[in-house]
Nucleic acid binder design. Structure first.
Lengths: 103, 103
DNA sequence: GTTTCATATTGACATTTTTTGATTTGGCGC
DNA sequence: GCGCCAAATCAAAAAATGTCAATATGAAAC
């Protein structure tokens, strides 16, 4: 529930413009790396770098088909990220309104 | 719905361990900066830096009371982030399963 | 007004992330 | 086996982010 390092990793997927753009493309369904490169105006190794981060976050999953790699949004990973975000931003049951003696 | 720069800013709140730790403290209710500093083992100006990012993301709101600043998790901002995350990870209605001729 | 205290801001530096180009790996067809 | 192609990895450079110490701001107490 609160392992900062692991949790931060999940949200690395969303805190970078390029990765959000990649995710936007993946919303149209599974895409091959070659398609992402041409749509994104990005170098081959830069794409590979971002795909690694997206996969490590659990938001994207990859599938190998011969020499091609296909990527898609992970339903499971997305669901978990949503729950995590909810957990992070929901006040504790016993939360006090004010915790500081200075007003 | 898809303005990458603005959206990335929201998730900056969650992609850093220290900011997640701060949010964890704020789950217990509104906290004054002085409390956060002593709980976090972090310098005063570093805390101020992180609080600025948290506020700019919309996830945290601040309240001035005399010379003290109090911070709390924004209900509205959290709700919006949740909806945004959902939008980002939900496939388009017309999404095809495979978009690449190579398998 | 002056002093004091809490926080914000600044600028220099350290660390981390991202990009780039070169090289490597691994699958496929020959 | 060899050559070809897609993608991953590496090493170095570039860019962005985070930290620290010093200074500035702004509210309160005097």
């Amino acid at each position: 529930m609160l392992i900062p390092a692991k949790n931060a990793q999940v949200f690395k997927a969303f805190c970078d413009e390029k990765r959000l753009a990649i995710l936007a493309l993946l919303r149209d369904g599974e895409q091959c790396a070659c398609v992402l490169i041409e749509q994104m105006d990005i170098g081959q190794s830069a794409l590979s770098y971002h795909m690694k981060i997206l996969c490590e976050s659990g938001i994207v999953e990859s599938r190998q088909a011969g020499k091609w790699t296909h990527y898609k949004i992970s339903e499971q990973g997305s669901k978990e990220a949503l729950l995590l975000l909810q957990a992070i931003t929901t006040p504790n049951a016993a939360a006090k309104d004010i915790n500081c003696r200075n007003q």
